[in-house]
């Protein structure tokens, strides 16, 4: 009987690393599949040309429209979301710093907003569009995605800004600084790495999400020249082009998947680097 618990211990010591490996393996498998499949179709013209003869049927051309579209959309959305979220996070962590109860409620709100799936944001964005009589366009897509990444940016930044020591705020106040000055001159600098990480994570979400732009951004074979034109995005380029029977078009989908994955990996690497590097003022 006494031995049993030691056997149990041994068994679990074996299956725990196995479970971990299985999870790592799934990631490796995903990336391997996307890379091998995508490399076969990736070419110079894929990233420098827009599709010829329609994205659904035409065999020629690339996915430049989707690459540019995705970048425009994600940049626009991140810009709007950052402009809105910086004052909010500073308000939470400078002006309302002592008010823990209230701020826990506010944090709960943003956590819950974070949990709302992007398809619901898409549907909500669609109702806004109908209300204002807008058509599917870059602008509508940007607004929807910015709403959807807002809680992501706020909570990611908040986690860093929360750690600003009270004594640092006091040091600034005791020099006669107002809360406003303290927030924008001291706290922002202290949490700079948090700001950058938040921007990158949000950018990754924005560039990778399909469900929120499905209703709102539309799709187009060309690169948009104004905010009111519909715009192609990488995720939707994958989704739509995967649905055709034409192998060349499917190839464009796989190439898009690879390009998107590369974007995400690069973002992940940069944000790792930043969190390590930019803590120099702490």
């Amino acid at each position: 009987m006494k031995k049993l618990r030691f056997i149990e211990e041994k068994i679990f010591r074996i299956i725990m690393p196995l479970a971990t490996s299985l999870i790592l393996l799934s990631l490796v498998l995903i990336i391997y599949t996307i890379v091998t499949k995508g490399m076969a179709s990736l070419s110079w013209s894929m990233i420098t040309e827009t599709p010829k003869g329609g994205f659904y049927m035409g065999k020629e051309g690339g996915v430049l429209n989707a690459i540019i579209g995705s970048i425009l959309l994600a940049c626009g959305a991140v810009l709007i979301a950052v402009i809105i979220s910086i004052p909010i996070v500073l308000y939470m962590n400078v002006y309302q710093r002592g008010n823990t109860k209230m701020m826990n409620l506010v944090r709960l709100c943003f956590d819950v907003l974070w949990g709302i799936p992007s398809i619901v944001y898409g549907a909500f964005g669609f109702t806004i569009m109908l209300y204002f009589g807008m058509k599917t366009s870059l602008l509508a897509g940007i607004i929807t995605v910015s709403l959807f990444i807002l809680p992501v940016i706020i909570r990611t930044m908040d986690e860093v800004f929360k750690t600003v020591p009270k004594e640092l705020l006091d040091a600034s106040y005791s020099l006669g600084a107002t809360k406003f000055e303290t927030a924008f001159k001291v706290v922002i600098r202290y949490g700079f790495s948090g700001l950058m990480t938040a921007i990158l994570i949000a950018f990754g979400r924005g560039i990778g999400d399909a469900a929120s732009v499905l209703f709102t951004a539309g799709y187009s074979d060309s690169i948009p020249t104004s905010l009111n034109e519909p715009v192609a995005t990488l995720p939707l380029a994958i989704f739509f082009q995967l649905g055709t029977p034409i192998p060349e078009v499917k190839g464009r989908a796989y190439a898009s998947a690879l390009i998107l994955t590369i974007f995400i990996m690069v973002i992940s690497i940069i944000s790792r680097y930043i969190t390590k590097r930019f803590n120099r003022y702490k």
């Binding site: 006091d170 040091a171 106040y173 005791s174 003022y281």
Partner: peptide
């Protein structure tokens, strides 16, 4: 009024700059 009073705390907290 705070400007009239300098503060040295228990541990130094240099501003992040």
């Amino acid at each position: 009024l705070r400007k009239k009073m300098g503060l040295l705390s228990q541990r130094p907290y240099p501003l992040p700059m």
